[in-house]
Design a protein around this nucleic acid. Sequence first.
DNA 1: TTGCAAAACGGAGGGTGCCTCCGTATATAT
DNA 2: ATATATACGGAGGCACCCTCCGTTTTGCAA
Lengths: 196, 196
Amino acid sequence: MGQVSQKPSRRPRADSVRNRQRVLEAATAVFSAGGPDASLEAVARRAGVGIGTLYRHFPTREALFEAVYRHEVDQLGELARTLAGQGDPVDALRAWLHANVRLVATKKGMLAALALAAHGPKELYAYSFEHLTRAVGLLLERAVAAGEVRDDITAADLLRALVGMCYMNDQPGWQVNVLRLVDVFVDGLRVRPGGS
Amino acid sequence: MGQVSQKPSRRPRADSVRNRQRVLEAATAVFSAGGPDASLEAVARRAGVGIGTLYRHFPTREALFEAVYRHEVDQLGELARTLAGQGDPVDALRAWLHANVRLVATKKGMLAALALAAHGPKELYAYSFEHLTRAVGLLLERAVAAGEVRDDITAADLLRALVGMCYMNDQPGWQVNVLRLVDVFVDGLRVRPGGS
DNA sequence: TTGCAAAACGGAGGGTGCCTCCGTATATAT
DNA sequence: ATATATACGGAGGCACCCTCCGTTTTGCAA
């Protein structure tokens, strides 16, 4: 992960760079609108490139997805790091989960990507899933360490529960519902004096 | 919903009945193995009928799904009715949710069907979703009436949360994890003396 | 500049699945 | 036995997936 590209080989071709960018933008638009099953040929058309070009840059549908959503994922990671440094642990955890729900509202495609991540044996979603797991992990561990939250739930479990709850909601106004469900869940997470 | 078919028209043809049955069995097998995206032509092949025959009996993929899983859904409905008559309300609710997880373990296809139910604007999954919602509703309302559970979560929300949590788990041993998550959720559902 | 090889382009093509349509076959009723 | 309602099956048109390869463009060296 250190040195990347100082080999005195050739400079990457300008058209290649440009086309890659175009495809990426087109994919963002098309996936946002049509979900993860959208036609790759539609993406190519919209980008104004041949289907072959699309496939050369992104050999699989998954590769394209990952490229599109990597940015969002990074953002969530940063948010977690910020939140981990301040305020009540449980509040911070809840805040991150809420932010996640909100982000899903605008970028529904990522959801699908994550759903697939949990499903298929494809390793390609590893990046997103790992990063997000690490992100919640940060917050979760702090809350556990503070003795405010039970310790038998893993970060991955928590993330899956979150995504699952989002995934199943499509009705108008679903955000409110999901946020409520998240609150219920966080309540359930709390260690409580008299609990079983 | 009363009289169904006493019109003195013709008796249904024997081959038609037989083929319908065959397609249904084939579909059960194929969907179980290959998920909800399995090829309908594969179903037809396995059933030993033409693709046209399949489509005549089940005009859409969804119709076929519904037929396949109606039975499972009915079973869960009955279980809810049984549980509603006995024991602690919260325990009953938890028991039903657990049973659901267990059933999902054997019939993963239903999961996918329900996931689609929440997603697409297709009304065809209404049956499953409505029935199950009614089923949890039974238990949830009883628990709310007993003052043991908060009253701002709907049966549909609860069901979606449940299915979502299942949906996102595919790893070996996922059942244990999901059951734990369900427990956390039910804990969170509880009305508690000092909570916010 | 010019020339040339590496790199990228694009789309034809072979495969598969979806669903419709309609000529043919068959079961039921008279 | 015949008529006719009913069901059958698969060909056909369309869309998508992905690969392969002849053509075009580009960067670099002379």
